[in-house]
Lab assay of single mutants.
Amino acid sequence: KNAAQIVDEALNQGITLFVADNRLQYETSRDNIPEELLNEWKYYRQDLIDFLQQLD
């Protein structure tokens, strides 16, 4: 998997990933985040941060 796929997957589930103060953050109206997504975000944290910062 790559960062773009993970960001896309999150968006499809109503979750927006973004970077604030060099930390990976998310916004969602969901009550909870599936644990497998959280684990994936932790595992790919630096890739996601790098990818999202390139988009800014």
Rank of each mutant, 00 (worst) to 15 (best):
R23V: 14
Q53A: 10
Y43T: 12
E27N: 12
N32P: 13
R45F: 12
N22D: 11
E35S: 09
V7K: 02
E27I: 15
L11V: 07
I49Y: 06
L48Q: 00
T16A: 07
L37F: 07
Q53T: 15
S29N: 12
Q46S: 07
I6C: 03
N32M: 12
D21G: 08
W41C: 02
Y43K: 12
Q46K: 10
E36V: 10
L24Y: 01
R45A: 15
V7C: 06
Y43G: 05
L48M: 03
K42E: 15
L17E: 02
A3M: 12
I6H: 01
E27Q: 12
L24H: 01
L52S: 01
Q54M: 11
I33P: 05
Y43W: 11
L55H: 12
Q5H: 05
L37P: 01
E35W: 08
E40F: 05
A20S: 12
Y26Q: 02
Q25L: 13
A3L: 06
R30W: 06
E36M: 07
A20L: 12
G14C: 10
L17D: 02
D47Y: 08
W41P: 00
T28W: 04
Q25T: 06
F51Y: 15
T16S: 07
Q53E: 11
E40Q: 08
L37N: 03
Y26H: 05
E36K: 09
N39K: 12
Q46E: 11
Y43H: 10
L17A: 01
N22I: 07
K42T: 14
Q54P: 09
T16L: 13
K42L: 14
K1T: 04
E40P: 01
N22K: 07
N32Y: 14
N22R: 06
N22V: 05
V7R: 04
Q46Y: 07
D50Q: 10
Y44D: 02
I15V: 09
T16N: 08
R23T: 15
R45C: 15
L38G: 03
N39V: 10
E27T: 14
N2V: 08
Y26K: 01
N32G: 08
L52M: 04
N22L: 07
Q53R: 12
A10N: 02
E36L: 07
Y26V: 05
E35D: 10
R23L: 14
G14I: 02
I49F: 06
P34K: 04
R30Y: 06
G14Q: 05
N22H: 07
D21L: 05
D21Q: 07
A10H: 02
L17T: 03
W41S: 01
D50V: 10
L37I: 07
I15W: 03
A10S: 04
D21C: 13
T16C: 15
N2Y: 08
R30D: 07
K42D: 15
Q25Y: 15
K1P: 04
Q5I: 07
A10Q: 01
V19R: 01
V7M: 05
Y43M: 14
I6M: 06
T16Q: 09
Y44H: 08
